[in-house]
Amino acid sequence: MTSITAKALAFRRLHVRGEPIVLYNIWDAGSAAVVARSGAKAIATGSWSVAAAQGYGDGEEMPLDDVLAVVRRVVRNVNVPVTVDFEGGYAVEPALVTENVRRLLQLNVVGLNLEDQVVNGLGLYSVREQVERLEAVRKAADDAGVPAFINARTDVFLKAEASIDHAALLDEALLREKAYAKAGADGFFVPGLADIVLVRKLCERASLPINVMAPDDPVRIREFVKLGVSRISLGPAPFFTMTADLERRARAAALAA
């Protein structure tokens, strides 16, 4: 068994209902090393944070080559499994998604997120379109011989209008979860869904491990743990925490002069 295969299988085993892996998302090799020293079992990038740390906006504004350069340094700087927020795969067509994921997997990552919103477009991909894109990701992983954990992200809740009750979207999310599972997804990521009752219902009805996004708050994280989720991501929250503290300290230093 190769080292990357062992890491990928170890990462897969961390997705346990009611005993979730908590991912304190990082943005570069330095932040990855700090989180790894904390005892983290795995490292996850956050696309918003990676882009912001390099002066870009989110939504694939950062060139793919630059993203891969950051990922390469992260992987080299830690010994634990690394998973990558790969946004929309930096492509629309499935064949190009396959090629981009192949490039990513060559860096020895153990997994990736693929979202179903149309990056820099309107709305979400249809279920059929996203299934084809997820099948393209699975093809890249199979071709590479890596049991990569494919985390299928749906933006059904995140992109919903504020006036729409999230309860009314649960059936659509479950429809997508079922289709994505058949396409080869290993997990189902639902950023934007925070209602305790709905998260519990989703965990009870879905076949895939459920991944939620939590704020940088241990109390809220413990709440999600009790709902039966298998993975908790903090997204850009760690970056916000760090930059807010940096700004506060810089302002205090300037005032002290």
Score class of each variant (00 low, 15 high):
M1P: 13
I4E: 09
T5A: 11
T5H: 11
A10Y: 04
R12A: 14
R12K: 15
V16Q: 14
V16F: 07
I21V: 15
Y24T: 15
N25I: 04
N25E: 06
I26R: 09
A29P: 10
S31Y: 03
K41W: 08
I43Y: 03
T45P: 12
G46M: 07
S47C: 11
W48F: 15
V50Y: 10
A52R: 13
A53M: 12
D58M: 02
M62Y: 09
P63S: 08
V80D: 01
P81Y: 05
T83W: 06
D85R: 05
E93C: 09
A95W: 00
V97Q: 00
E99M: 02
Q106C: 13
Q106A: 15
L107Q: 14
V109L: 09
V110A: 08
V110H: 02
E115S: 07
Q117I: 11
V119E: 12
N120Q: 15
N120W: 11
G123L: 12
Y125S: 02
E129M: 12
E129R: 14
V131R: 08
E132T: 03
A136W: 09
R138E: 03
A140K: 02
A141G: 11
D142K: 05
D143I: 07
G145R: 12
P147A: 04
A148Y: 00
R153K: 10
R153C: 04
R153M: 06
T154N: 01
T154W: 03
D155W: 11
V156Y: 02
L158Y: 03
A162G: 01
I164T: 09
D165F: 03
H166E: 11
A167Q: 03
L169D: 02
L175I: 10
K178H: 13
Y180S: 07
G187Y: 09
G187L: 13
F188T: 11
V190N: 02
I196N: 12
K201I: 01
C203N: 07
E204L: 00
E204V: 02
E204W: 01
R205W: 05
L208C: 07
L208A: 06
M213P: 08
A214T: 14
A214K: 09
P215M: 02
V219H: 11
E223V: 03
L227P: 01
I232L: 00
A237N: 12
P238C: 13
F239Q: 04
F239E: 04
F240G: 04
M242P: 00
R248I: 03
A250G: 10
A252I: 06
A252V: 10
A256S: 13
